[in-house]
Write a protein that binds this DNA or RNA. Structure first.
Length: 508
DNA sequence: TCTGGGGTCCTCACCCTC
DNA sequence: TCTGGAGGGTGAGGACCC
């Protein structure tokens, strides 16, 4: 525990929704709901205006629409959020080398390590200046918590929301926490909260009174000791700038449960390929392959297999995933499939040898179908193109689209999976939650477009062969709405406009 | 129209080796 | 030779977070 409240926690307010409001003037002050728009989509973030209707994160989108029928429901645009996040994280790194990002919109900063604050007044001043700098650089608001530990700083920023700053003086932690709900503490979710409630413990003060032994008995050694210490306001965890990833995974939920075993196998292969793409992009190989299956009744199974050594070979991961699938009963239907790799390592000598062997062996064997590890690795040697080629019949269109677009847009489409363009991609197809797909073109609500005559805008909605676009940009006023045929040649997808500065004004 | 996606960490069971 | 722990590796599942 610090002698001064020099650990800062920044939490951007309703981040995704705020970015959307900043980039779409007509949505400012309105209810905005960002999330999956398919029949099984959930809310990622809701603006404060939408929250007043009871909409919150992780709520099924269908329920959110019922609660807030006039809210604007938009798909997430991760490439834009990442850009804004980079700007904010850059401001944090000007304060200290010790910045620990938790997600795109949250981070801890050790102000003392940066030499910018040593006591409560200087920490508060740094926090206020940071909020102003973020507003100037992005137009968005963030909430700041300051305390002597990470846990308390996070509690403080949560209390400060929205657009506030709260400093918890060192020495007042226990009194500050005592009346709060146990659910305030990190690590206490619905299950633990209910467990504690049944034991008559609902506040942090009661948690502290229960004593360590009792908590260990109730929730286990590790969790019990941790909970007790947090209840006393004790948290010695340092701010850690670099964290190594421990696993990489991809998963897809399907709009309609899958029953066909062949189709399920194909999806697993496709997920294995995507997982390896990610694995390689992160510069890792991995040793344990994990298959995740969520069945029709929402029960979730995982099956894993540990290899003799780490791999980043798509053929090896595909084969392992296929073996694992053989052990899973999918009768009744499958709503989600996932493939992951854990036990990550840097590239190994073994991989390099295998790669060299494959290059030699695969030089004349180009057709690939049914090829063994060596030939596949050879065909993949060039990186991304090889991975895409693996999809062949089933996903040729998708591969082509991903390759043909800017990397930002490609990544965005991938991350908002559930909105992909190919017919067998989850979230796609006619009537899938406000999408209109013709060939490669998907006009998901919220996505950026540009019209040859009217300039930049965003898709407000689509259906029955029409797409409605609002022509506005961050620096403009609320723009006008126009409707086009979905295959209007003058309308095309575009990249997001920057939130602050650089816009070309007056179009539309 | 119930319940996304990408993670981390923990616990428990089982097997194997020493 | 048999037996019982300890401890590590592995596999499965649950809870939690953003």
């Amino acid at each position: 525990m610090r002698a001064a409240p020099t650990i800062l926690h920044l939490d951007m307010d309703a981040f995704y929704a705020s970015v959307e409001q900043a980039s779409k003037p007509s949505l400012r002050g309105k209810a905005v709901i960002v999330g999956g728009l398919g029949p099984r989509g959930v809310v990622a973030t809701a603006s404060y205006e939408a929250r007043r209707f009871g909409v919150h994160s992780a709520m099924p989108m269908a329920q959110a629409r019922r609660l807030c029928p006039n809210g604007a429901c938009l798909i997430p645009r991760f490439s834009l959020y990442r850009e804004v996040s980079d700007t904010v994280m850059g401001l944090l790194r000007e304060l200290s080398p010790l910045v620990e990002p938790l997600s795109l919109d949250e981070a801890f900063v050790d102000l003392e390590a940066g030499g910018v604050a040593f006591d409560a007044p200087t920490a508060r001043a740094v926090g206020e200046r940071l909020r102003a700098d973020i507003a100037a650089a992005t137009g968005l608001s963030g909430s700041v918590g300051l305390a002597g530990s990470k846990m308390l700083a996070k509690v403080a920023s949560e209390e400060a929301k929205p657009a506030g700053l709260l400093l918890i003086e060192v020495g007042t932690e226990r009194a500050h926490l005592a009346p709060m709900s146990v659910r305030t503490l990190p690590g206490v979710g619905p299950a633990t909260g209910e467990h504690l409630r049944r034991a008559g413990i609902t506040t942090v003060g009661e948690l502290a009174e229960a004593g360590e032994d009792e908590l260990v008995r109730m929730v286990g050694r590790s969790h019990g000791v941790g909970l007790y210490r947090m209840a006393l306001g004790v948290d010695e965890r340092p701010v850690v700038a670099e964290r190594d990833a421990k696993s990489v995974s991809v998963e897809d939920t399907f709009d309609v449960d899958l029953h066909d075993r062949v189709r399920i196998r194909n999806e697993v292969q496709r997920l294995a390929d995507r997982c390896v793409e990610r694995l390689r992009a992160s510069g890792h190989s991995g040793r344990t392959i994990v298959l995740k299956v969520r069945r029709y009744d929402f029960s979730t199974l995982t099956r894993s297999e540990t290899l003799r050594g780490p791999t980043d070979d798509p053929a090896v991961v595909r084969e392992a995933a296929a073996r694992l699938l053989e052990a899973v009963d999918t009768t009744g239907g499958v709503r989600l499939l996932g493939v992951g790799v854990t036990g990550l390592a840097d590239y190994t000598q073994e991989d390099l040898f295998a790669f060299a062997d494959a290059m030699a062996a695969g030089a004349g064997a180009g057709d690939g179908d049914g090829a063994g590890v060596g030939a596949e690795a050879g065909s993949d040697g060039g990186a991304v193109e090889g991975v895409e080629a693996v999809g062949r019949q089933e996903s040729a269109g998708r591969g082509g689209e991903a390759a043909g677009r800017g990397d930002g847009a490609g990544a965005e489409q991938d991350e908002s999976s559930g909105q992909g363009p190919a017919p067998d991609r989850p979230g796609a197809g006619p009537g899938a939650g406000g999408l209109e797909a013709v060939g490669e073109r998907v006009w998901a609500a919220g996505r950026d477009v540009r019209h040859a005559e009217y300039g930049p805008g965003w898709v407000q909605g689509s259906g029955v062969g029409r797409v409605t676009v609002r022509f506005e940009q961050p620096g403009s006023g609320p723009g006008r709405v126009r409707t086009f045929l979905v295959d209007d040649p003058e309308l095309e997808p575009s990249d997001p406009m920057p939130l602050v500065g650089e816009q070309s004004l007056g179009v539309g």
